[in-house]
Design a protein around this nucleic acid. Sequence first.
DNA 1: AATTGTTGTTTGATGCATCATGTTTTTCGT
DNA 2: ACGAAAAACATGATGCATCAAACAACAATT
Lengths: 228, 228
Amino acid sequence: MTEGFALQMVEHDNLGEIVYGQLSDALIKGRFAPDARLTIRDLAQSLGTSVTPVRDAILRLIQDEALVQKSAREVRVPVMTLERYLEIRQIRMKLEGLAARETALKAEARDIERLRELVTRNEQAIAAADWPAALELNQTFHFALAEIAGMTVLRGILNRLWLQMGPMIAASYQHGGRAMIDYHHMILLAIEARDADRAERAIVDDIRGASSAIIEQLAALKPTGSAG
Amino acid sequence: MTEGFALQMVEHDNLGEIVYGQLSDALIKGRFAPDARLTIRDLAQSLGTSVTPVRDAILRLIQDEALVQKSAREVRVPVMTLERYLEIRQIRMKLEGLAARETALKAEARDIERLRELVTRNEQAIAAADWPAALELNQTFHFALAEIAGMTVLRGILNRLWLQMGPMIAASYQHGGRAMIDYHHMILLAIEARDADRAERAIVDDIRGASSAIIEQLAALKPTGSAG
DNA sequence: AATTGTTGTTTGATGCATCATGTTTTTCGT
DNA sequence: ACGAAAAACATGATGCATCAAACAACAATT
């Protein structure tokens, strides 16, 4: 679990930080249903802390837009709309395209090795139909590009975007099948060849490919107004 | 002051929100020096509240990376590095390029009118050598593109980036002179002509142009290590 | 039975007391 | 006077009591 892949900074180990990590993880892993309501006191009880650290963590997640404050005392897991998802997809294509491009230029041997291992492990997870693991490895691969590119700001933005998409991706990813891992191979090849253009094109295709299933699902879920 | 240009949501008027707004504003306006230390109690006293709302606000600003936690009880205004600024610039070029492109496709008459008015007012501010006003109008123009494009996620990212750059931009902007307002004219023309490509190129040039002065300054400030 | 007024409950916001820890200042021995 | 030890101080974290607003449950009146 707590290997070396975590954020560059372990941060201070206050309770709020821990709770934030736990809630982030739960969100990304899709353990909170979209539109689920979170209450501070309930979470505090579940996690065995007082309300303060939970309040801190929720405040931060709201700032991340990983939770939304519907009213003064109502915090909910956001429901992704098709429109919003399409915007995030556009942003990711630009940002991750940039990261892939930089990575192609800057990657060293051990970086490439790391990427290759991620792809391999993802292959294995898919072969074993271990979707949670495949999901996490997919995410790690995308983050790794930003990290290798040395783009910490971009990495942070990506992290937030993923946090926002988490509850929804977790529900839809299996439908993506194994298409995206092929793109990962292509990205890796482009990076090995130091071909920035091709790396960018490959990751854009990857994002497009992985999202098509999700878009279908979102379009099917909310084709009409939200009156209900 | 509190005209209609604010964020789409007025949010709940709790004290923490107000303090967050005040601190954000101070940060963007450059009223905190880079590396200045902020203490909760001092701010609470200055603002006439208890520590809780200030603590909330600072927590959120740290999440925005508009403040950095150097150690367990040390929160400071971040010092922009050249490296970080270059990364933000790259990201902005991609993101704002996307926004300009979308705006060129979607802008209606009143949107264009709004942009034109911003440019005009910026002209006037520059003519009057009112740098704070020019600075704010410049920012508003950039945000307006994201808003007209209807890209709320992008708008949020941009907001955070600006918050991070705030303390530094405020100190350097005057050196940018009036070059960038010319780019704004070009952006406006491209949008009026519905020319997405040209709009994107213009805003990329705008960002590049405005940043060159800042880059020089950053390069001059920290050419060597930070030992000191 | 439907509507409305009352009461009780839930819940986040706020302020504050206390604590742990890190920093500064003071004190004391040499 | 210099340096080390100790006391004092500063400061964010944590928990908690209280409050106000929203909401739910329930009762009363027509």
